[in-house]
């Protein structure tokens, strides 16, 4: 065991893992965190806590992770390179470990131009691949980037994101390989809709032997409506929603679109379970956390395994 987190245990014992996602509130409300967390309790192996997602100021991801720990849930701390330099990153990582956080997901972060403070100065001292190497150094060498020995070693299960649908497509698998070289243990992907492209990506990753070197978790986001599908297709950079899903949602009446969206997600999950190299799913039910139990139940992923 590298970190001994529940997610690590589930994955290393060969179970098909399930992670969820929780977006912290735009305020100091503990109740808001507890409410969202309650939907995820007992149905996922670990919960990603986003780090000022889309560059909108939200409650600190470290703080929300700590709230989840206190609720008996396992958090996966997302950390972006946008807002912290290497000093703040290492400091926050040490602090997170001290608070009982055991998983970290290393991300570049959405550009601050998209958020509610586009006037802010960004950092990008290191990039996401380099951040992985920092977390690994802290864990495996017990040293900071400066070479300073840590007084108490922070051992994290190290994650990263991958977007198979960004361009240039040919470089996407290379980028995954670089993250593995840097020290990543598990990867969660961007929301997958274009299953053909996804299969191609996984085939290439498998050919390069990457599926043996890290756990790849497929990103699933259920579509709530044809409007959301169109929005994702049009406005989210690096997201690929094929027309056949949009057509399929258009084919059912409006109030049944949500149910159809869930059906699509369940079908996708079922296909992921059969696909070699896919170690689990990362279910991002955006502002739809209460549907997570229903989706996982329908996909036959409940109850979650208990691994010691």
């Amino acid at each position: 065991m590298k970190a001994g987190s529940n997610l690590e245990k589930v994955l290393t014992s060969g179970h098909f893992a399930v992670t969820g996602e929780l977006g912290p509130p735009r305020g100091a409300s503990v109740e808001a965190v507890e409410k969202k967390a309650s939907y995820l309790k007992g149905v996922v192996d670990s919960i990603n806590v986003t780090d000022n997602q889309t560059s909108v100021v939200r409650m600190s991801s470290v703080a929300v992770c700590k709230l989840l720990v206190d609720m008996g849930l396992e958090p996966n701390l997302q950390m972006v390179c946008r807002d912290r330099n290497r000093i703040a990153m290492q400091s926050d990582l040490l602090g997170a470990y001290a608070l009982g956080i055991r998983n970290v997901l290393c991300l570049s972060g959405d550009h601050n131009k998209f958020g509610d403070h586009p006037q802010s100065k960004n950092v990008f001292d290191v990039d996401s691949v380099q951040l992985i190497s920092i977390v690994k150094m802290l864990r495996d060498e017990g040293k900071m980037l400066s070479g300073q020995e840590c007084e108490g070693v922070a051992k994290f299960f190290i994650g990263a994101a991958a977007n198979p649908f960004g361009d240039p497509f040919e470089f996407r698998v290379t980028r995954l390989a670089k993250k593995i070289d840097a020290g990543v243990d598990f990867v969660q992907t961007q929301c997958i809709y274009n299953m053909d492209k996804w299969r191609k990506y996984m085939h290439m990753a498998h050919e390069e032997g990457l599926t043996e070197k890290c756990y790849i978790m497929a990103g699933i986001t259920p579509l709530k409506s044809v409007g959301m599908a169109r929005y994702m297709a049009k406005f989210v950079p690096g997201l690929d929603v094929p027309d056949y899903y949009i057509e399929r949602l258009k084919g059912v009446e409006k109030k049944k679109q949500a149910a159809e969206g869930i059906k699509i997600a369940v079908e996708q999950i079922q296909e992921m379970r059969e696909m070699p190299g896919v170690a689990g799913i990362h279910l991002m039910a955006i502002e739809w956390e209460h549907k997570v139990p229903e989706i996982l139940e329908a996909a036959g992923l409940l109850p979650r395994p208990k691994v010691d």
Partner: peptide, 26 residues
């Protein structure tokens, strides 16, 4: 690169454009 990335394009690269603006080349 809008994020000064040193190890390849972020997930926002699409159609050779930066996620920040279609006016910016990735």
């Amino acid at each position: 690169c809008s994020k000064s990335l040193m190890n390849g394009p972020c997930g926002g690269s699409a159609n050779k454009q930066c996620e920040v603006s279609p006016e910016i080349d990735c």
